[in-house]
Structures are given as structure tokens and as C-alpha cells.
Design a protein around this nucleic acid. Structure first.
Length: 426
RNA sequence: GGAGAGGUGGCUGAGUGGCCGAUAGCGCCGGCUUGCUAAGCCGGUGUACUGGUUUUUCCGGUACCGAGGGUUCGAAUCCCUCCCUCUCCGCCA
């Protein structure tokens, strides 16, 4: 949610921002509603003020006169009730509109209509040239008895899977390595709820708009399965006023993530690239409302992810996501794409977003500055490692001619000291 | 799932219809005092919207005592619904 003052004072900026994101936005109805709301509130305040004064004087009057005085207040009371109802309605409508106003993209966000126009800003490592015919992760995974897609689909539907044996262990190793590397940098590890109230989905900016992508419990419970630990972690301090001396807050959380992937039928159907459930280690930063600092944090969380990829010897590139591919909540987003031999291209494995106060405003998450003034926080987040896609990259990039997979050094301690997994295939 | 207790300001905790935006203590901030340390004294200390003053300051209005509704001229206080916490029982991991 953006500050409504921006809409009042510089609506053209807000509209230009939406255009850059290719999001249709007409501020007319919103501004009209806002003006009516303010006028009605002032009127309400005036009426209430009169009522309060009257009630007070009745209280001071001798008891035998009260009934008579109270008689005169009844009409005003009805009028007030009517106006309060109208006001409540206005407020609800206004908030609904305001929730859909996209955040303003940064100047550094490139113009563009979709992901094809994202701008590459960095490339690390060289995609490996195989001196043999490399297997894709499914062929390799099934040959090694590491992946069972068929039974996954049977018990949970398409885009579900079992990991078995060393690949299941490898998943744990990657998560653990990612988590520990973040802890070393001072991030506080969290175990989090993955079923959250829909209010929290609104607070983090996923709703309204993303309902189709989330699994929701039935009407008995107003709970939604999160698509990322970003949601519970960012909402951790909802409705709080933090001390600026306690900022920045650096959090890292490992969690299961659930995505409906509605509207992706036929896309990435082979393999485990696009699945309904996976494990992910996520980093979240909460800090004061300083754009320069936010930008610094943004670069920092990208670097954190890069260090993990470099340690795992995986070639990647970073793209500056263009306006049309940017979500409504973000100021700017950098995606990290890791080389995946089977795709013969880089596939998205990380997504680093900067929000300024967009999420904090919705979550009512604030802090008090040195002068005692209260402001909304700034928030950011990025993947550290997301399980299946990282596993795809790991086993495809580090496979050997005989079907075994070499383990990069940092994972070995978590794999019983072994330097490779898998049996030689015939 | 059944029975009961409760949710008040950063914290503890008063307040059972008007004098309560809310006693008190702690904490915090400012000032004073004391030769150090500790303590003491005085003052201040919520958030949002809003009017005037028109950056700051200052003065005023409205709302908020878990959330939403209701009763009443008037609700932190009474009633209803929901959420949450705690205790006991049951069930389950």
C-alpha cells in the first residue's frame, strides 16, 4: 500500500509508475472517494463533539432533570448512526481500492513488457561444456532412484514428487548449508508458520490479486498455505512499533512453500522445475525508512545469494527485472537465474525484492526514530536457496559421465564427508 | 471437542455506567541535587485522523482499553458474536 498522500499530491507519478509496470490504474474513483471520506469525517467529528458536550452536561445535571435533557439527544443519535455507517462503507471501499494501487518502481527499473525484456546485469561462471551427453535431472534422478514423479502424482496430483535416498539427503544438505551461511552473517534463524491468516497475505502484498496462486483452507479456517517464508517472516512484527536501535532486523527462515501454479498448464511440465511444494531458505530484512539504506540492503541480499551459488560452483546471471515483469508491491527486483543444462538456459532460482514501506504500511509495522517520530519500516527479501531448482542445477551441472554427481566442497560435511553421490550407471 | 478464567498504555497492574485516554509502580526522556557508586527530587512520556497556528513549536476536535456489533443522552465498565491467551478434562502427534 502506498501513502495516500502520494495519490493526493502527485497522482501523475503514481499513474506513471503503474504504466511502467503495465498495470491498469485509474485514480479517479479513488480520489473522489478519498475527498468524500475526509469531508464526512470532519462532519462526523463535529457532530460527535456536540454530542459529547451534551452528554457531559446531562451527566452534571441533577438526576431529576436528566431524562428531560436526554430526550433532546435521541434524534441526533440516529443521524450520527446513519453517517457512521456511510463512513464505514467509504473507508472499506477506499481501502479496497488503495490495496490495488501498485508501488512505484524505481528509476533504475528498465522499461519492458515482460520477462523477455529483463536486463542482464551480471554473469558469473561459464556454463559447462560436456564431453559426454549430459542427462537431465529426471533421467538422472530416475536412473539413480532419486526421484519418483509417478508416485508423487499418484498420491498428490501432478507437479508433486518424492525425493529418495541421497537426493533427499542432498536437499537437506543444501538447505542446511544455506541456512548456516546466513546465520554466520548475523541473520537470526526462524522456524515459522506456513499456514497463515489471509490478513497476512494481504499484509505482504500477495492478496488481493494472488488468490489463484495460493492454497486456501476451507471456510472453517481462514488460513492460507504460504508460497514462501517471506510471508510469515515479514509479518513477524505486524502491528508493532520497533525501536530504531533494534533495526535492522535480519531474519532467515527455512520452510516448505506451496504454490498452486494455476495458469501454468503445459509450462515446464517435464521434471521438477515447476512444482506445487518445495523447500526454501529465505532472507528478510526489516529496517528504517531510508531509500539509500534499502538499496544497500538490496545489494547485500543479492550478494548473500551469490556467495551460496559460487560456493556451490553453479554458473548464474543476475537480471534487473523490467517494469512489465515486476509485481505490484515491488520497487525493484533482481532475479538470479542459475544455469540448467537440460533447459540449455538460465532458470530462475532466486528473487530479490525491495519494497520500501509498501508491505510495512499494510502490515502496520513501524519504528520510532531517534527523535521519537514514528515511521513505517522498509522491507526486503531474497531467496537463499530453493530446494528443487537448486537440486536440478546441482545434479545437472555436476554430473559425471558415469552418472555419479560430484559434490561441491561446502555440501560434503552434510553428506557424511562424501565427495560424490550416485552409483556408476551402465 | 467439553468446562472454566481472562485480554487495559513499552511492561506490571487499578478501574463494574458520566469526574477515565484512563490511578499507581516499573521503564524511558529532560532538568535538579549528591565528592564517587547507588539513590533522591521535579517535570515529561501512546497511536491515527483532523481544524487553527500555517516547516519546527503551540492550541483545539475526533477515534482507539483484543476485534466487530448492540443497549444508553453517555460504555474500558452492561449485552451478543468472533479472535486470542491461560487452567482442567478428552482426543491425537
Amino acid at each position: 500500500m502506498i501513502d495516500i498522500r502520494l495519490i493526493r499530491e502527485t497522482p501523475e507519478r503514481v499513474e506513471a509508475g503503474a504504466r511502467k509496470k503495465r498495470i491498469a490504474l485509474d485514480l479517479g474513483p479513488l480520489r473522489e472517494l478519498d475527498a468524500r471520506k475526509t469531508a464526512l469525517q470532519q462532519e462526523l467529528d463535529r457532530i460527535r463533539s456536540e454530542q459529547n458536550a451534551a452528554a457531559k452536561s446531562i451527566g452534571k445535571a441533577p438526576p431529576e432533570e436528566r431524562a428531560k435533557l436526554a430526550e433532546g439527544q435521541k434524534a441526533a443519535k440516529l443521524q450520527l448512526k446513519e453517517k457512521e455507517e456511510a463512513f464505514g462503507k467509504l473507508e472499506t471501499e477506499l481501502r479496497a481500492l488503495l490495496l490495488r494501487v501498485p508501488n512505484l518502481p524505481a528509476a533504475e527499473v528498465p522499461e519492458g513488457k515482460d520477462d523477455s525484456e529483463n536486463v542482464e546485469v551480471k554473469k558469473w561462471g561459464e556454463p559447462r561444456r560436456f564431453e559426454f551427453e549430459p542427462r537431465d535431472h529426471i533421467a538422472l534422478g530416475e536412473a539413480q532412484d532419486w526421484i519418483d514423479v509417478e508416485r508423487g502424482a499418484r498420491i498428490a496430483g501432478s507437479r508433486n514428487y518424492f525425493l529418495k535416498g541421497d537426493l533427499s539427503l542432498l536437499e537437506g544438505a543444501v538447505m542446511r548449508f544455506a541456512l548456516e551461511s546466513m546465520c554466520q552473517k548475523g541473520f537470526v534463524p526462524l522456524s515459522v508458520p506456513t499456514l497463515v491468516r489471509s490478513e497476512v497475505m494481504i499484509g505482504t502484498g500477495y492478496f488481493p490479486g494472488g488468490e489463484e496462486q495460493a492454497y486456501r483452507c476451507d471456510e472453517r479456517d481462514d488460513l492460507v498455505l504460504v508460497g514462501t517464508a517471506e510471508v510469515p517472516v515479514t509479518a513477524l512484527h505486524q502491528d508493532e512499533i520497533l525501536k530504531c536501535t533494534d533495526l535492522p532486523r535480519l531474519y532467515v527462515a527455512s520452510s516448505s512453500c506451496y504454490r498452486r501454479e494455476a495458469g501454468t498448464y503445459g509450462k515446464d511440465t517435464r521434471g521438477l522445475y515447476r512444482v506445487h511444494q518445495f523447500q526454501k531458505v529465505e532472507q528478510v530484512v526489516i529496517d528504517i525508512a531510508d531509500p539509500a539504506k534499502s538499496l544497500e540492503h538490496h545489494h547485500m541480499i543479492v550478494r548473500n545469494a551469490e556467495e551460496v551459488l559460487q560456493a556451490l560452483e553453479l554458473p548464474y546471471r543476475i537480471v534487473n527485472v523490467c517494469g512489465g515483469d515486476l509485481g505490484a508491491p515491488q520497487i525493484q527486483k533482481f532475479d538470479i537465474e542459475t544455469w540448467m543444462p537440460s533447459r540449455k538456459s538460465y532458470g530462475e532460482t532466486h528473487s530479490a525484492s525491495r519494497f520500501h514501506d509498501y508491505q510495512a504500511r499494510r502490515l502496520n509495522m513501524r519504528y520510532r526514530d531517534e527523535a521519537g517520530k514514528v515511521h513505517f519500516c522498509h522491507t526486503l527479501n531474497n531467496t537463499v536457496a530453493a530446494s528443487v531448482r537448486m537440486l536440478i542445477a546441482l545434479i545437472e551441472n555436476h554430473q559425471c559421465a558415469d552418472g555419479t554427481v560430484r559434490l561441491p566442497a561446502p555440501l560434503r560435511p552434510y553428506m557424511g564427508g562424501r565427495d560424490s553421490i550416485g552409483k556408476p550407471l551402465g
